[in-house]
């Protein structure tokens, strides 16, 4: 099932004052829209505001940043992404997973990153543990993090060319007997 975007509330009609409102009010976190993906809460944040939102969330108790990763949506249909209104689907998406120990919950943030200027503010000042994770995203996708202290390749050799997890980078299979190399996915 695709994500259900948060819908806007409908104004109640005059004659049905006693009826409860049929549409839920849109859910937001710090003013940014929330969608649900298989029941998991996902917040969509514009690129420039990522650091402020994560810092504000940290002050509220979302103390741990579990994961920073990215997805390259080059070969996928745009409308399958379940983005709320006001969010243009871009080629890359940076995904941040936060954890609150007091609420025993996780929160996912999705940030759209365009292909022509793949730069995102770094979360290093807010969560130092994102240092290695952002380096991995840079290495694998080519997305730079503004404010990161040491943005160099971490998994591939330092002089490697290209960003392997991008969809236009081949798997690099060598032909093996009885099995042709698959096409790009």
């Amino acid at each position: 099932m695709a994500d259900e975007p948060a819908s806007q509330g409908d104004a109640p009609t005059d004659t049905d004052i006693a009826d409860p409102p049929t549409e839920p009010t849109p859910e937001t976190v710090h003013g940014h829209p929330v969608t649900r993906s298989r029941g998991q809460k996902v917040v969509h944040v514009p690129r420039e505001e990522l650091r402020t939102v994560v810092a504000a969330l940290r002050d509220e108790g979302w103390l741990m940043c579990l994961d920073v990763t990215a997805v390259d949506y080059l070969l996928s249909d745009d409308d399958a992404r379940g983005l709320p209104d006001g969010f243009e689907p871009e080629r890359f998406e940076v995904v941040v997973v936060l954890m609150s120990h007091t609420e025993r919950a996780r929160l996912r943030l999705r940030v759209q990153v365009p292909d022509d200027a793949p730069v995102v503010p770094s979360l290093f000042e807010v969560h130092p543990g994102t240092e290695a994770m952002e380096r991995e995203v840079y290495d694998m996708f080519g997305i730079s993090f503004d404010g990161h202290p040491d943005l160099t390749r971490i998994l591939m050799p330092e002089d490697w060319d290209g960003h392997p997890l991008r969809k236009d980078y081949g798997v690099g299979r060598i032909p093996v007997q009885f099995k042709e190399a698959p096409g790009p996915r």
């Binding site: 392997p164 980078y169 081949g170 798997v171 690099g172 299979r173 060598i174």
Partner: peptide, 12 residues
């Protein structure tokens, strides 16, 4: 032979 990892990262 490179095993199950026939890709860019592993020497075959």
């Amino acid at each position: 032979t490179g095993g199950m990892f026939n890709n860019y990262a592993i020497v075959q």
